[in-house]
Nucleic acid binder design. Structure first.
Lengths: 211, 211, 211, 211
DNA sequence: CATGAATGAGTATTCATTCAT
DNA sequence: CATGAATGAATACTCATTCAT
């Protein structure tokens, strides 16, 4: 009793993800996040239970809560972690793609991000969970679009069409690839993805100044 | 809630959605389904509760269960209802589109299905809920693709590329439109959808035998 | 999952104590309240658990929550119920005490309220629980003081001192009696209460206009 | 939290509050006790958590447990500390009040104890917590009454009524003052306290042998 | 059939306490 | 001794589902 849900007020406002101060804590946090990732993919965000996540991490429920005081906060922490990696991938492409054609860069993005999703299938789960803070959602989307735009802006020959729109297209075509990856008809879907990749290439070639 | 009980099955044969005999029952069922649709859209499938659905239908929980013995069965019933309407739309296009160019038909599909989703926003919720029977998922997907294929097969000039693949593309591009409809950046999204529509047109024109 | 505590929002705002619509419900509610009273007295408000209350009512936890959606709401409902009875007692004295001396009325109040507390020992527990809505606390206190004031105003000979102050004194002296009732040294405490009763009498006699 | 574990006792002898050997330990203990006092007042005994107390003392939970192996023991230690101070106050009055009238001494007690409560608002919290050992409760109460009795016995002119009873009255009137101090209607409460003080004076004057 | 009460397993979360470093 | 991570029983509360009236 004297449960939080009763009217007792914590003086320290919103609970936050705790940063571990010991080595053991750091390791544990990593294990917990991976366990969460696994369970979120398997069951979906809503159906995933904190208990199962703790079990998957071979940890006690108390330990889980020591670092992630609520389920949304756990999801958020994992989400941010993955988003950081995703942005790193794009940043890497930004560097390497200077002077490359938009069409080629587009395919690079397409391929690298497909690989990313395959490695971190929890990403789409996290990115679409219902209780994601709306502001966060828009911000991270903007960040991704900005990175893709940066890639396109560095393209040679330059793109004439609005770069933002192109970025949005890429992002959306990727969303399809993501979903398709979870569908059962693997064979056909692979062809579908290839096709989308091609449509993108065409569109980007068209958008490139043909001098 | 992904409650254990949800998936519990009586050994005495699967419970089935009851077909009401009297008129009153029919009305009640319709009201219940609409209420379910509303709540599913508002809260999502998992977070929607049978109690709230009953309340939204100004009915009692007992009544709701009289017709839909489990939550998945309720979702399934609604899903089928909407799917029927969706197929009707496509069938209508099949008829009207004989002799029309694939590109024009594609746009027609795009527009009509967009309108459908706007009218029945619960459709994507139902189509992506986690506990959808996998077999059902594949079957309905196949039905939709077959209908779109029928449209494309009737196109004049005929399509040379594999019709099934084209159908898949259309379906996926639509998925984007659906998601985009739920995003906050309305203005940009509208442009995005228009762009996808255009890409589709291009692809279909290209696929058409240019004699 | 999809627990209330997650970010899902109920459309209907604050949960409220539900009014039973069936006979069975009415009975159950009564039993639940008595059980709550018993457990609150035994364990105190904080240490009382909803589970134990349900058990004491030979009811399921679900049933308890059907009518009292939170522990504070349960306490509040019981509090109000008892407060109503308490006010009824005072109203009864108001009627009977017209023309009686303030000193006699004071003793009557003292005795009747002592009896009340003995019958409903949960009252002080409820009235002093930490999460009582402050506004409610002040309002009920004001109501009680107003009733006692009404009694004193009807006294013959009339009271010259400020009636409100006298009411506050009575209320406070009673608080002592209440606490004393829960102490172990019964014998001495009884004498103490008698003494307080006497002090009150003296004070009221003094306050009465001796023409 | 009235946790089961609170009352769990190791078979290997009751854990006891550790007496620190070094200066640093003494300081730490003092800080911990003050932090506990603060949190107990803010949240109440039940709602206060060991973690929050440790934090308030800018100490670690481990350190807190080093000195106070259980929450009740912590409360007990603080309780005793405050009780010692309270007795010191009364002892001081005993000395100074020889030959003074009971009425004057009574007012002195009233005032000094009011001040004490204002300085140590945790005292009533501790003195009324549910898990206070009953025996302790009675013993400390007896000690206080004895001290007050000593004061009254030294009064000039001597008291004829039973001194113990008078002591009890004083103690109880004080209880009111305490509670009143926590009520919101400050202004009125002040008048109330003054009034009780006066009633006490009257009663003590009356109890004094008027030769 | 309609109604709403009854049920209880399941869920997120808390917190006193222990223990390895 | 200090520190903070680990533990898990206990708690409030939810919700699908059943059933008596």
């Amino acid at each position: 009793m004297t449960n939080m849900r009763e009217s007792s007020q914590k003086s320290s406002g919103e609970p936050q993800t705790r940063v571990p101060k010991r080595r053991r804590g750091h390791d544990r946090v990593a294990v917990l996040l991976e366990a969460a990732a696994k369970v979120f993919v398997q069951k979906g965000y809503d159906a995933a239970t904190m208990t199962e996540i703790a079990a998957a991490a071979r940890s006690s429920i108390g330990s889980l809560y020591q670092f992630f005081p609520t389920k949304p906060l756990l999801a958020e922490a994992l989400h941010i972690e993955r988003l950081e990696r995703l942005k790193a991938v794009l940043r890497d492409i930004v560097e390497k793609s200077a002077g490359i054609s938009a069409a080629d860069s587009g395919e690079e993005i397409f391929d690298r991000l497909s690989a990313f999703i395959e490695t971190f299938p929890e990403y789409p789960v996290l990115a679409t969970r219902r209780d994601i803070p709306k502001e966060r959602k828009m911000r991270s989307r903007a960040e991704l679009k900005e990175l893709i735009s940066a890639i396109l802006r560095g393209a040679q020959p330059p793109i004439k069409d609005e770069v933002t729109l192109m970025s949005a297209i890429i992002l959306e075509l990727l969303r399809i690839a993501v979903v398709a990856a979870n569908e059962p008809e693997a064979a056909e879907d692979r062809r579908l993805v290839r096709e989308l990749r091609l449509m993108l290439r065409k569109r980007l070639e068209e958008a490139s100044t043909t001098a």
